[in-house]
């Protein structure tokens, strides 16, 4: 049972590291979305369903969409 915690923690940490240190902007945004999914799972494991729902809808949904819209407006064709 403790393996789920370890898997979620490692997944979130790894994708967040990719998001910060990656070179391309689009891959960074996608890694941020994955880190938000890992964060949603973490909030669920911490017995916080309200916060998990908010993190899923806002961070993995609308925030990623905002990033991609802004990147498109700046003329990125996909790094």
């Amino acid at each position: 049972m403790g393996y789920i915690y370890l898997a979620v923690v490692l997944f979130t940490g790894f994708t967040a590291a990719i998001a910060v240190f990656s070179r391309g902007r689009v891959s960074s945004v996608v890694a941020l979305a994955l880190a938000s999914v890992g964060l949603t799972a973490s909030f669920y494991l911490l017995q916080a369903p309200d916060v998990a729902m908010a993190e899923a809808v806002i961070s993995a949904g609308l925030s990623t969409a905002l990033f991609l819209f802004a990147l498109r407006k700046m003329g990125i064709r996909g790094d």
């Binding site: 967040a16 998001a19 910060v20 902007r25 960074s28 945004v29 880190a35 961070s59 990033f67």
Partner: peptide
Amino acid sequence: FVKILISLSV
């Protein structure tokens, strides 16, 4: 600047 915003989000 976009990477700075992503890091701020993290």
